[in-house]
Protein backbone atom coordinates (compact mmCIF):
# COMPACT_ATOMS: atom_id res chain seq x y z
CA UNK A 1 0.00 0.00 0.00
CA UNK A 2 2.76 2.36 1.07
CA UNK A 3 5.13 1.44 -1.76
CA UNK A 4 2.90 2.28 -4.69
CA UNK A 5 2.03 5.86 -3.83
CA UNK A 6 5.60 6.48 -2.75
CA UNK A 7 6.88 5.40 -6.18
CA UNK A 8 4.49 7.74 -7.89
CA UNK A 9 5.55 10.50 -5.59
CA UNK A 10 9.24 9.94 -6.27
CA UNK A 11 8.61 9.99 -10.02
CA UNK A 12 6.67 13.20 -9.73
CA UNK A 13 9.37 14.75 -7.59
CA UNK A 14 12.09 13.67 -10.05
CA UNK A 15 10.25 15.17 -12.97
CA UNK A 16 9.82 18.30 -10.98
CA UNK A 17 13.56 18.42 -10.18
CA UNK A 18 14.37 18.06 -13.87
CA UNK A 19 12.10 20.99 -14.66
CA UNK A 20 13.74 23.12 -11.99
CA UNK A 21 17.19 22.12 -13.25
CA UNK A 22 16.14 23.12 -16.74
CA UNK A 23 14.88 26.44 -15.40
CA UNK A 24 18.17 27.11 -13.67
CA UNK A 25 20.23 26.26 -16.72
CA UNK A 26 18.04 28.53 -18.82
CA UNK A 27 18.41 31.41 -16.39
CA UNK A 28 22.20 31.07 -16.46
CA UNK A 29 22.13 30.94 -20.25
CA UNK A 30 20.12 34.13 -20.37
CA UNK A 31 22.49 35.74 -17.88
CA UNK A 32 25.47 34.90 -20.05
CA UNK A 33 23.78 36.36 -23.12
CA UNK A 34 22.63 39.60 -21.53
CA UNK A 35 25.96 40.18 -19.81
CA UNK A 36 27.70 43.31 -21.08
CA UNK A 37 30.62 41.31 -22.49
CA UNK A 38 30.25 38.43 -24.83
CA UNK A 39 31.97 35.39 -23.31
CA UNK A 40 34.61 35.55 -25.99
CA UNK A 41 35.47 39.18 -25.27
CA UNK A 42 36.65 38.41 -21.79
CA UNK A 43 38.85 35.64 -22.98
CA UNK A 44 40.12 37.68 -25.89
CA UNK A 45 41.23 40.40 -23.55
CA UNK A 46 43.44 37.81 -21.91
CA UNK A 47 44.72 36.51 -25.20
CA UNK A 48 45.55 39.94 -26.47
CA UNK A 49 47.37 40.68 -23.27
CA UNK A 50 49.53 37.66 -23.93
CA UNK A 51 50.25 38.90 -27.44
CA UNK A 52 48.57 36.08 -29.39
CA UNK A 53 46.69 36.38 -32.66
CA UNK A 54 43.27 37.63 -31.68
CA UNK A 55 41.47 37.09 -34.98
CA UNK A 56 42.45 33.45 -35.24
CA UNK A 57 41.50 32.65 -31.69
CA UNK A 58 38.22 34.53 -32.06
CA UNK A 59 37.19 32.35 -34.95
CA UNK A 60 38.20 29.23 -33.07
CA UNK A 61 36.18 30.21 -30.02
CA UNK A 62 33.18 31.31 -31.99
CA UNK A 63 32.96 28.01 -33.76
CA UNK A 64 33.75 26.07 -30.58
CA UNK A 65 30.90 27.78 -28.77
CA UNK A 66 28.78 28.22 -31.84
CA UNK A 67 28.48 31.92 -31.19
CA UNK A 68 27.95 32.45 -34.91
CA UNK A 69 24.76 30.40 -34.88
CA UNK A 70 21.24 31.68 -34.10
CA UNK A 71 20.54 32.06 -30.39
CA UNK A 72 18.06 29.20 -30.31
CA UNK A 73 20.61 26.82 -31.75
CA UNK A 74 23.17 28.09 -29.26
CA UNK A 75 20.71 27.40 -26.49
CA UNK A 76 20.10 23.91 -27.81
CA UNK A 77 23.83 23.23 -28.03
CA UNK A 78 24.31 24.55 -24.53
CA UNK A 79 21.69 22.15 -23.18
CA UNK A 80 23.12 19.26 -25.19
CA UNK A 81 26.64 19.85 -23.91
CA UNK A 82 25.49 20.11 -20.36
CA UNK A 83 23.43 16.96 -20.65
CA UNK A 84 26.56 15.15 -21.78
CA UNK A 85 28.50 16.48 -18.81
CA UNK A 86 30.49 18.86 -20.98
CA UNK A 87 30.96 21.98 -18.89
CA UNK A 88 33.30 23.71 -21.31
CA UNK A 89 36.98 24.53 -21.36
CA UNK A 90 38.84 26.36 -18.65
CA UNK A 91 40.96 29.03 -20.30
CA UNK A 92 43.10 29.85 -17.34
CA UNK A 93 44.10 26.30 -16.46
CA UNK A 94 43.95 24.84 -19.97
CA UNK A 95 41.87 21.81 -19.19
CA UNK A 96 38.23 20.77 -19.49
CA UNK A 97 36.23 22.28 -16.66
CA UNK A 98 34.92 18.86 -15.73
CA UNK A 99 38.49 17.62 -15.15
CA UNK A 100 39.33 20.69 -13.11
CA UNK A 101 36.31 20.04 -10.93
CA UNK A 102 37.16 16.35 -10.76
CA UNK A 103 40.54 17.27 -9.34
CA UNK A 104 39.33 19.71 -6.73
CA UNK A 105 35.89 18.71 -5.49
CA UNK A 106 37.32 16.41 -2.88
CA UNK A 107 38.79 19.32 -0.90
CA UNK A 108 35.44 21.07 -0.73
CA UNK A 109 33.74 17.82 0.13
CA UNK A 110 36.22 17.14 2.90
CA UNK A 111 35.73 20.57 4.43
CA UNK A 112 31.94 20.56 4.16
CA UNK A 113 31.58 16.96 5.29
CA UNK A 114 33.76 17.35 8.37
CA UNK A 115 32.19 20.67 9.34
CA UNK A 116 28.62 19.49 8.82
CA UNK A 117 29.14 16.25 10.67
CA UNK A 118 30.78 17.86 13.68
CA UNK A 119 28.35 20.77 13.66
CA UNK A 120 25.32 18.48 13.47
CA UNK A 121 26.49 16.30 16.35
CA UNK A 122 27.49 19.18 18.61
CA UNK A 123 24.60 21.42 17.62
CA UNK A 124 21.91 18.79 18.07
CA UNK A 125 23.25 17.62 21.43
CA UNK A 126 23.57 21.16 22.78
CA UNK A 127 20.16 22.08 21.41
CA UNK A 128 18.53 19.08 23.07
CA UNK A 129 20.22 19.83 26.34
CA UNK A 130 19.24 23.47 26.15
CA UNK A 131 15.60 22.59 25.47
CA UNK A 132 15.38 20.06 28.29
CA UNK A 133 16.88 22.58 30.70
CA UNK A 134 14.79 25.47 29.40
CA UNK A 135 15.17 28.67 31.44
CA UNK A 136 18.18 27.31 33.32
CA UNK A 137 21.50 29.11 33.47
CA UNK A 138 23.06 26.67 31.00
CA UNK A 139 20.18 27.23 28.61
CA UNK A 140 20.84 30.97 28.75
CA UNK A 141 24.54 30.46 28.14
CA UNK A 142 23.97 28.12 25.20
CA UNK A 143 21.35 30.44 23.73
CA UNK A 144 23.61 33.46 24.06
CA UNK A 145 26.47 31.64 22.37
CA UNK A 146 24.22 30.44 19.60
CA UNK A 147 23.05 33.98 19.01
CA UNK A 148 26.66 35.12 18.81
CA UNK A 149 27.45 32.17 16.55
CA UNK A 150 24.78 32.97 13.97
CA UNK A 151 25.74 36.64 14.03
CA UNK A 152 29.50 36.38 13.68
CA UNK A 153 30.53 36.82 10.04
CA UNK A 154 32.27 33.57 9.25
CA UNK A 155 34.91 35.18 7.04
CA UNK A 156 35.81 37.57 9.84
CA UNK A 157 35.98 34.71 12.30
CA UNK A 158 38.39 32.99 9.92
CA UNK A 159 40.60 36.08 9.71
CA UNK A 160 40.55 36.48 13.49
CA UNK A 161 41.53 32.84 13.98
CA UNK A 162 44.46 33.33 11.61
CA UNK A 163 45.43 36.50 13.44
CA UNK A 164 45.32 34.76 16.80
CA UNK A 165 46.59 31.26 16.11
CA UNK A 166 48.86 31.77 13.13
CA UNK A 167 50.16 35.33 13.30
CA UNK A 168 50.31 35.82 17.08
CA UNK A 169 50.68 32.31 18.48
CA UNK A 170 52.02 30.45 15.47
CA UNK A 171 50.21 27.24 16.40
CA UNK A 172 48.63 26.26 13.11
CA UNK A 173 50.07 26.47 9.69
CA UNK A 174 47.57 28.30 7.55
CA UNK A 175 47.89 26.91 4.11
CA UNK A 176 46.81 23.59 2.84
CA UNK A 177 49.45 21.59 0.98
CA UNK A 178 48.10 19.73 -2.05
CA UNK A 179 51.31 17.83 -2.57
CA UNK A 180 50.70 15.94 0.65
CA UNK A 181 48.04 13.21 0.79
CA UNK A 182 44.49 14.26 1.58
CA UNK A 183 44.38 12.71 5.02
CA UNK A 184 47.94 13.40 6.07
CA UNK A 185 48.41 14.72 9.57
CA UNK A 186 49.69 18.03 8.23
CA UNK A 187 46.63 18.65 6.13
CA UNK A 188 44.23 17.52 8.82
CA UNK A 189 45.91 20.03 11.10
CA UNK A 190 45.51 22.67 8.41
CA UNK A 191 41.78 21.85 8.42
CA UNK A 192 41.28 22.57 12.12
CA UNK A 193 40.81 26.33 11.76
CA UNK A 194 38.72 26.12 8.55
CA UNK A 195 36.39 23.53 10.07
CA UNK A 196 36.05 25.70 13.15
CA UNK A 197 35.36 28.75 10.96
CA UNK A 198 32.72 27.07 8.86
CA UNK A 199 31.32 24.99 11.73
CA UNK A 200 30.69 27.76 14.25
CA UNK A 201 27.77 29.30 12.42
CA UNK A 202 26.38 25.87 11.62
CA UNK A 203 26.57 24.70 15.23
CA UNK A 204 24.83 27.88 16.32
CA UNK A 205 22.10 27.41 13.74
CA UNK A 206 21.57 23.75 14.61
CA UNK A 207 21.41 24.56 18.32
CA UNK A 208 18.64 27.03 17.66
CA UNK A 209 16.69 24.78 15.32
CA UNK A 210 17.03 21.79 17.62
CA UNK A 211 16.10 23.73 20.70
CA UNK A 212 12.95 25.16 19.16
CA UNK A 213 11.94 21.87 17.54
CA UNK A 214 12.45 20.06 20.86
CA UNK A 215 10.52 22.72 22.77
CA UNK A 216 7.66 22.54 20.28
CA UNK A 217 7.35 18.84 20.94
CA UNK A 218 8.15 18.88 24.64
CA UNK A 219 4.93 20.78 25.24
CA UNK A 220 2.81 18.26 23.38
CA UNK A 221 0.37 15.96 25.08
CA UNK A 222 2.07 12.75 23.99
CA UNK A 223 5.04 13.63 26.18
CA UNK A 224 2.82 13.61 29.25
CA UNK A 225 1.40 10.30 28.06
CA UNK A 226 4.89 8.88 27.73
CA UNK A 227 5.76 10.00 31.25
CA UNK A 228 2.45 8.69 32.59
CA UNK A 229 3.36 5.29 31.16
CA UNK A 230 6.33 5.19 33.51
CA UNK A 231 9.05 5.68 30.93
CA UNK A 232 12.34 7.06 32.20
CA UNK A 233 13.04 10.65 31.19
CA UNK A 234 15.88 9.47 28.95
CA UNK A 235 13.43 7.50 26.81
CA UNK A 236 10.83 10.25 26.85
CA UNK A 237 13.30 12.79 25.50
CA UNK A 238 15.51 10.60 23.35
CA UNK A 239 12.79 8.52 21.77
CA UNK A 240 9.46 10.30 21.89
CA UNK A 241 10.41 13.95 21.68
CA UNK A 242 13.51 13.64 19.54
CA UNK A 243 11.86 11.44 16.93
CA UNK A 244 9.24 14.07 16.39
CA UNK A 245 11.71 16.93 16.44
CA UNK A 246 14.11 15.21 14.07
CA UNK A 247 11.97 15.31 10.94
CA UNK A 248 11.63 19.07 10.56
CA UNK A 249 15.19 19.40 11.81
CA UNK A 250 16.67 17.27 9.04
CA UNK A 251 14.77 19.26 6.44
CA UNK A 252 16.10 22.54 7.74
CA UNK A 253 19.64 21.22 8.02
CA UNK A 254 19.56 19.94 4.47
CA UNK A 255 18.01 23.10 3.19
CA UNK A 256 20.77 25.13 4.84
CA UNK A 257 23.36 23.21 2.86
CA UNK A 258 22.68 25.01 -0.38
CA UNK A 259 21.74 28.40 0.98
CA UNK A 260 24.25 28.88 3.77
CA UNK A 261 26.89 26.18 3.89
CA UNK A 262 28.03 26.48 0.26
CA UNK A 263 28.53 30.22 0.61
CA UNK A 264 30.36 29.78 3.90
CA UNK A 265 32.60 27.07 2.46
CA UNK A 266 33.39 29.30 -0.52
CA UNK A 267 34.69 32.05 1.77
CA UNK A 268 36.45 29.64 4.12
CA UNK A 269 38.33 28.04 1.27
CA UNK A 270 39.52 31.41 0.05
CA UNK A 271 40.64 32.57 3.49
CA UNK A 272 42.54 29.38 4.29
CA UNK A 273 43.76 28.59 0.79
CA UNK A 274 42.00 25.25 0.58
CA UNK A 275 42.06 24.26 -3.10
CA UNK A 276 38.37 23.34 -3.32
CA UNK A 277 35.71 24.46 -5.76
CA UNK A 278 35.23 27.80 -4.01
CA UNK A 279 38.88 28.62 -4.43
CA UNK A 280 38.76 27.48 -8.07
CA UNK A 281 35.76 29.65 -8.77
CA UNK A 282 37.38 32.58 -6.97
CA UNK A 283 40.54 32.24 -9.05
CA UNK A 284 38.48 31.89 -12.20
CA UNK A 285 36.62 35.11 -11.41
CA UNK A 286 39.85 37.06 -11.38
CA UNK A 287 41.20 35.24 -14.46
CA UNK A 288 37.97 35.96 -16.36
CA UNK A 289 37.59 32.23 -16.84
CA UNK A 290 33.83 32.30 -17.12
CA UNK A 291 33.08 28.63 -17.94
CA UNK A 292 34.54 27.66 -14.57
CA UNK A 293 32.52 30.26 -12.66
CA UNK A 294 29.32 29.18 -14.35
CA UNK A 295 30.05 25.48 -14.00
CA UNK A 296 30.65 25.79 -10.28
CA UNK A 297 27.48 27.80 -9.78
CA UNK A 298 25.56 25.15 -11.69
CA UNK A 299 27.13 22.31 -9.75
CA UNK A 300 26.36 23.99 -6.45
CA UNK A 301 22.79 24.52 -7.55
CA UNK A 302 22.32 20.97 -8.78
CA UNK A 303 23.76 19.62 -5.56
CA UNK A 304 21.38 21.76 -3.52
CA UNK A 305 18.53 20.54 -5.69
CA UNK A 306 19.56 16.92 -5.30
CA UNK A 307 19.88 17.21 -1.55
CA UNK A 308 16.44 18.82 -1.34
CA UNK A 309 15.01 16.05 -3.47
CA UNK A 310 16.53 13.31 -1.33
CA UNK A 311 15.44 15.00 1.88
CA UNK A 312 11.93 15.40 0.61
CA UNK A 313 11.65 11.77 -0.37
CA UNK A 314 13.24 10.59 2.86
CA UNK A 315 10.90 12.82 4.83
CA UNK A 316 7.93 11.38 3.02
CA UNK A 317 9.17 7.91 3.66
CA UNK A 318 9.90 8.34 7.34
CA UNK A 319 7.02 10.51 8.46
CA UNK A 320 3.98 8.26 8.65
CA UNK A 321 1.65 11.25 8.68
CA UNK A 322 2.52 12.38 5.17
CA UNK A 323 0.75 10.76 2.27
CA UNK A 324 0.73 12.15 -1.23
CA UNK A 325 -1.87 10.60 -3.42
Amino acid sequence: MRKSWLQGYILKRLLYAVIIAWGIVTITFILIRIGPNSPADKYLANIAARGQDVAQVTAAIESRYGLDKPIIVQYGDYLMHLAQGDLGWSFSTSMPVIDLIGKHWIYSFQLIFLSSLLAAIIGILLGMYSAVKQYSKIDYIISTFSFAGISIPNFWLGVMLILLFSVKLGWFKVFYDTTLPLLSLENLKALVLPVFTLGTGMVAGYVRYTRSAMLDNLRKAFVTTARAKGLPERTVIGKHVFRNAMLPLVTIIMFDLGSIVFGGAYLTEIIFGIPGLGQISFNAVFANDYPVVIAITLIGTFLALLVNLITDIAYTYFDPRIRYE
Partner: peptide, 14 residues
Amino acid sequence: MIFQDAQSAFNPVL
Protein backbone atom coordinates in the same frame (compact mmCIF):
# COMPACT_ATOMS: atom_id res chain seq x y z
CA MET B 1 -4.05 7.49 33.18
CA ILE B 2 -6.11 8.34 30.13
CA PHE B 3 -6.42 11.80 28.67
CA GLN B 4 -9.10 13.99 27.22
CA ASP B 5 -7.63 14.31 23.75
CA ALA B 6 -6.52 10.93 22.45
CA GLN B 7 -5.74 12.66 19.18
CA SER B 8 -2.68 14.35 20.63
CA ALA B 9 -2.01 11.92 23.46
CA PHE B 10 -0.48 9.33 21.14
CA ASN B 11 2.95 9.89 19.65
CA PRO B 12 2.24 10.50 15.95
CA VAL B 13 5.36 8.78 14.62
CA LEU B 14 5.04 5.46 16.44
